[in-house]
């Protein structure tokens, strides 16, 4: 990593942490985000009742298994890769690598960000038809990695969701 990359990463991290404390500024920043503006928005239909629907969770909060490679915090443009989180993963085997927001509360109770335990409960009680394999990204992704996300890693995850016959996906951000 060059000194310039290091500086960008540090500034990006500080900016992300600052946005956590300054939502109005974050909203202003959001107005500059136009990655897919003007493109049609797809809409699939959920055809079966919830009690029969297999759900999967996808988060962009930087969650991963302790045994997995952490997300890359050295690349100031982010990390478009993903981590596979099996549905039966014990929560104490999970951690968060994401320098761009304050995740101290999520580390106390992961359900506020990645509700794996609650979704397992809903499946056990028959409220949902089941919980499939879940996935995690690190949400701070800038060009050129946005292209990798859209063209490669997100389609890979979508393909696995379809292969596992997942009926619906709940996505949660950082």
């Amino acid at each position: 990593m060059t000194d310039f990359d290091w500086l960008r990463q540090r500034l990006g991290s500080a900016f992300g942490q600052f946005l956590s404390q300054a939502p109005e500024l974050a909203r202003l920043w959001g107005q500059w985000f136009d990655a897919v503006e003007g493109q049609p928005v797809p809409l699939a239909r959920l055809e079966k009742p919830l009690r029969e629907a297999r759900l999967a969770l996808v988060t962009t909060g930087g969650v991963h298994l302790r045994a997995q490679t952490p997300f890359d915090m050295h690349d100031s443009h982010g990390d478009p890769s993903y981590r596979v989180i099996p549905a039966d993963t014990p929560v104490d085997e999970l951690m968060i690598t994401h320098d761009y927001y304050d995740h101290s509360d999520a580390e106390r109770d992961l359900n506020i960000l990645f509700p794996l335990e609650l979704a397992r409960e809903l499946a056990a009680h028959g409220a949902i038809g089941g919980l499939g394999t879940c996935y995690s990204f690190m949400g701070h992704i800038e060009p050129p990695h946005v292209e990798t996300l859209i063209r490669q890693t997100a389609p890979e995850v979508a393909g696995m969701l379809r292969q596992e016959q997942i009926d619906a996906v709940l996505l949660t951000p950082a």
């Binding site: 928005v41 797809p42 809409l43 699939a44 239909r45 959920l46 996808v58 859209i150 997100a154 389609p155 995850v157 979508a158 393909g159 969701l161 379809r162 997942i166 009926d167 619906a168 996906v169 709940l170 996505l171």
Partner: peptide, 9 residues
Amino acid sequence: VIETFGIPT
């Protein structure tokens, strides 16, 4: 992307 694979999100 997931929705284009036919899965509601």
